[in-house]
Every structure is written in C-alpha cells, then in structure tokens.
Nucleic acid binder design. Structure first.
Lengths: 201, 201
DNA sequence: GGAGACCCGTGCCATTTGTCATGGCCGATC
DNA sequence: GATCGGCCATGACAAATGGCACGGGTCTCC
C-alpha cells in the first residue's frame, strides 16, 4: 500500500481527490490537511510515502514546505499538484526536492500514474509544462527586482511600493524600469502580470 | 436517482468530483464536460436533473451557459460551483437563474447537501458569501467603465485600451478616471484589481 | 417637453511614471 | 588589485496618467 498525504486549501477539491484516490486498491490516504503549516505535523504523525502538495495554501507556501519536509522525512517523496502551469514554479519545485509535478488540468489517471511512478523511485513531470519550462528558461530578474514587482502587483503608486519595500522612490523606479525592460513590458502592471504568469514572483 | 451533469475545466478536479459524487447512492453522474460550449449538447443528450457548472471555463462563461441552459431545459436546475467567492459572481449567477452557489472552499458534504436541496426545489447559497454579497452591494460601474477596466486589467497603456475597446484615448481616460473614483482606488491597476475581486468584471 | 442617466469626445493642467546618466558601496571572480 | 555585477541613491527630462471642465449625443422615465 502506498500511503498518501493530501494538502490542498480547497476542502471540496481535497475531499474529492481523496475519494478518487481511495478507489485505487494500492493507495491509502492517511492524512488530509488544508494549510501549509499543518503538513509537517501530519507527516510526522502518519509517515506517508507520498506527500501531495498544492502550491498556494494559506499559512505556508507548498514549495517551502516541500523543502523542509524533504529534510525532516527523507523517505517521504513530494509531488506538487497545482492549478498553475508556470515554468518558474516547476523549477522551484524541483530545486526544493520535489519528485513530481502534476497540473490539475491533466486527466485523473495521470495523477495516479505519477504517484505510482514516484513511489517506485522515478520522477514525474507534466510533459507539456516540462517543454514550456525548457523554452522560457530561468527568471532574468534579480531578487530586488522581484521584490519590487511583487509589491507593485496590487497596483499601488511608486510611493506605496517604496514604503512596503523600504527604499527610495527613485530606486524603486530604477528597479521597475529594469524589470520592465527584462520582461519586455511597457508598464509595470504588464511586467508584474508577465512575471506572475511565468512564476517568477 | 438524481442525475448530475458536471462541467469544470480542470480534468483532475472534474474526475475527482465525479468519483466523490458517485459514492453517494442517490446520485448519478451522467455527463462530464470540460468547456462551456459542450454543456448544452451534453445536457440535451443526457437530460440531467442538476447541472454543476464552474464559472471560469474555456469557450463559454459558466454564468452565460447557465442562463441558456435554463431556457433550453427548464427542468434542469443549475448549481454554480467555483473557486471564487466574489459577490458579483453570486448576484450574476442568481439573475442567470441558478438555484445554488457553492464555493470550493466548503466541505465536501456541503456540495452533496446543496445538490439534494436544489433537487428538492429549494435554493442553496454558501452562507458566508451570501452575507458578504449583501454587505458589498451591486456594482457601481457602468457597462463601459467595466469594459475599459477589463481591457486595462492586463496592464497595457491607454492607447492599447483605446484600441481594444474602440474609443478615443481621452474617452478611455475619462472612463478610467470615473472607475477609479468609484472604486476608491488611486491607480487604474488598483481599480482593476478591486473590481476584479468584487466580481464586477 | 423636460430631467436625468450614460456615452463619447476635446482640451487643459498638475502629478506621476519611465528612462537615462552618474556615483558610491559592497561581494564575487579573475 | 582590478573588474564586474548587483544594490542603493540622486537628479533631470519627456511622456503618460489622473483629474477636471465642457459640449453634444442618445436613451429612459416622469
């Protein structure tokens, strides 16, 4: 039996996934949690073989949880399962030690397939996303540029951004200008949107 | 037996929901589709009692599908099931003739509960969302303002917006200015974000 | 026949924004 | 030690933006 831990913030989806996985005779859902902070505790209690983590969860990011989970329970392998097919997420997931990456668009069998393969010691990455990831490459943004762009994402003024990041307005404008150039955008809003969809933030 | 049609663009979630609903002895999933355009055909073929529609789907909006479905098959009742708890979506869903509104955050039993209640001729709306909807009220934006804001959402310049909407730059600026005032924002990006989260777009 | 809403356009002005040049301060690399 | 890249800051300038006033057009409702 493959012991599975399920982490997703949407209770309905989480429950539905659990129902589906339970139909497989070789799978056993041993824990269901709805936030990133609960994952480690639950994993220590139930010692799952596979942890299925969503990226965006309240409390803690699924990617950062993956890294810590890997250190705390080396025998537990991680599969990231998320709505977003963003190249940046994939690369961050892999460098966080994840063994699998499944997009919620893919057919149900693919998730089960991924679980079995990962449990067998292999890796599994959504094929389409893998190709796209190779095409777009890594983030061209520096850390600060990403910070500033993140702060700019909700549409505030330069003064707002400067306050939240703790910089001068002029510096913020420089970082923004640089980010706009690198993302080939013409507005910081556009730059933020592009960087977001690439998973660079 | 309650016959259910399932429409959600994410195949994994759709399949999982189907698995879950099939566990209930009085429910029968008679159709699964992944886009708004397929809903009507599938409904005509399978004559479901309940159509469970996601809001955002490729092809056609779940809300507009709901309205047409209601006209084409008056006996089929519609439940909107979506990730987003946005007041505007709820009011639009209700005016489109939906009988239920369930958020994907809610526990699995709530969906089953909603299906049974709606099938019994009652209505079901997520309680938290219903309260929030009453609090925020209807959209203050005019049609054109909403159009312009929608076009502004991806961060283009005023010239871009004017081109996509087919207006003069000056007019676009006026609509934007008005929308900014109504949403109490200080940037059109902020206004677009606010309107978006309220479900006004 | 108004009154009032929304729509579209023009024009003007203060502010904000994007861009560029310049300089100092690190830490890494050669 | 020199060089390079990232980071922070300043200053200056053209363009874009937001705010506002104005006029004309179409509707609906009273």
């Amino acid at each position: 039996m493959i012991r599975v831990l399920l982490a997703d913030d949407q209770a309905l989806v989480r429950g539905a996934l659990a129902s589906m996985l339970r139909l497989e005779s070789d799978l056993e859902v041993v824990a269901e949690v709805g936030s990133g902070t609960e994952v480690l505790d639950a994993a220590r209690r139930t010692a799952p073989d596979i942890a299925l983590l969503d990226v965006q969860m309240p409390g803690r990011d699924g990617l950062s949880v993956a890294a810590e989970l890997r250190r705390a329970l080396p025998d537990c392998r991680v599969i990231i399962c998320t709505t977003f097919s963003r190249p940046g997420y994939l690369s961050r997931a892999m460098s966080a030690g994840a063994a699998g990456y499944v997009v919620k668009d893919s057919p149900p069998e693919q998730l089960v397939n991924a679980i079995r393969r990962v449990h067998a010691g292999l890796r599994f990455v959504d094929p389409a996303l893998a190709a796209e990831s190779l095409a777009t490459g890594a983030s061209p943004l520096t850390d600060r540029e990403a910070d500033v762009l993140r702060a700019a994402a909700d549409g505030g003024t330069v003064a707002d951004i400067a306050r939240t990041v703790g910089l001068t307005e002029g510096t913020v404008r420089n970082h923004l200008s640089s980010a706009i150039g690198k993302t080939q955008a013409r507005t910081r809003a556009e730059a933020a949107r592009l960087a977001e969809t690439q998973g660079w933030l």
